[in-house]
């Protein structure tokens, strides 16, 4: 399985721990990643679609020329790209974008590129059975709350269309269980983490972060896992602030999806860059019997 790999900005920026973890895990899974170094930001829902659609069309055209589907590792990248790709299915619109924006570079997008999140790639392309075979350090019933990130779930007709309902509705739960963990259904699992309004309304953002993490704990989870680095920035990065805002201790470690997979496949915490998290993952490491250096 070979993909045009779109790492996005955050896996190398705000969450630098993610990018190397992805490469290691993908390698172990045998997912061949050809990184798209020459691809622009998706716009992340911040740039106007008037400009982000052409930028994304450019990315799609390049992958199309490579003859590969795109793999993302961020719910936001995935969501924005899926939506843009959907709009670009309209012939008239796509041709306008090609004409006005891409032709100068000699590119043309024909509308055939598939964009897939790593989570979907694992569940749909690689397969849970094969994943199970690779588990050498099972999670041993570890209760983990899944947190998808809103962009991986919505709009549902695009993100979880009927033909993928079986695999995508519970993709994260299924991965947790394949790794030997117990998926904990928290009420925030498909909701927005609060990150997008950190700038405009920090108070509300922290309330959301606090509610989601506290609810996961209340439901019995000892850790959370997310396929979205923006959610990670919020749930891990702002957790201490959220705890202060809520006046309650939280302290629940949050894993990037590939980190949790990697840990179960035998990678060391260091290899998964767990030391870079703001909320310590040590209790989980201990619980899984990972050797912890003093």
């Amino acid at each position: 399985m070979k993909y045009a790999f779109y790492p996005g900005c955050v896996s190398k920026g705000g969450c630098p721990e993610l990018y190397p973890a992805v490469l290691k895990v993908a390698d172990k899974l045998g997912l061949e990643l050809v990184e798209m170094e020459d691809a622009g930001c998706t716009g992340a829902g911040i740039l106007s679609r008037e400009v982000s659609d052409p930028i994304n069309a450019r990315t799609f055209a390049k992958a199309e020329a490579m003859g590969l589907p795109i793999m993302t590792i961020c719910s936001t990248c995935q969501g924005v790209m899926t939506q843009a790709n959907h709009r670009l299915k309209d012939d008239e619109y796509r041709q306008m974008i090609n004409r006005e924006y891409l032709s100068e570079e000699g590119l043309e997008y024909k509308g055939t590129t598939d964009v897939r999140h790593m989570l979907w790639a694992i569940v749909e392309d690689y397969g849970l059975d094969k994943l199970r075979d690779l588990v050498v350090r099972p999670l041993n019933g570890l209760p983990v709350a899944q947190f998808y990130g809103c962009y991986l779930k919505r709009p549902p007709e695009l993100m979880v269309p009927k033909e993928f309902a079986k695999t995508r509705k519970t993709a994260l739960e299924d991965v947790i269980e394949a790794l030997g963990g117990v998926a904990v259904k928290s009420s925030g699992r498909g909701k927005c983490c609060g990150f997008p309004i950190l700038t405009s309304n920090e108070e509300n953002s922290l309330s959301m972060c606090g509610d989601h993490t506290l609810d996961a704990k209340a439901k019995g989870a000892v850790a959370m896992v997310t396929p979205c680095p923006l959610c990670h920035l919020e749930l891990d990065g702002k957790q201490a602030d959220a705890a202060a805002h809520k006046g309650q201790e939280i302290n629940i470690p949050v894993f990037h999806l590939p980190q949790l997979v990697g840990l179960a496949m035998g990678f060391s915490p260091k290899e998964m860059n767990l030391q870079r998290h703001l909320v310590s993952t040590k209790p989980i490491e201990q619980r899984l019997g990972v050797e912890v250096k003093a």
Binding site: G45, G79, C150, Y151, R154, P155, P156, K191, C192, G194, F195, P196, I197, S200, N201, N204, M208
Partner: peptide
């Protein structure tokens, strides 16, 4: 409007 997280719940 800037307090909206554009999470697409409303559209859903």
């Amino acid at each position: 409007m800037w307090d909206c997280t554009h999470c697409f719940e409303a559209s859903e």
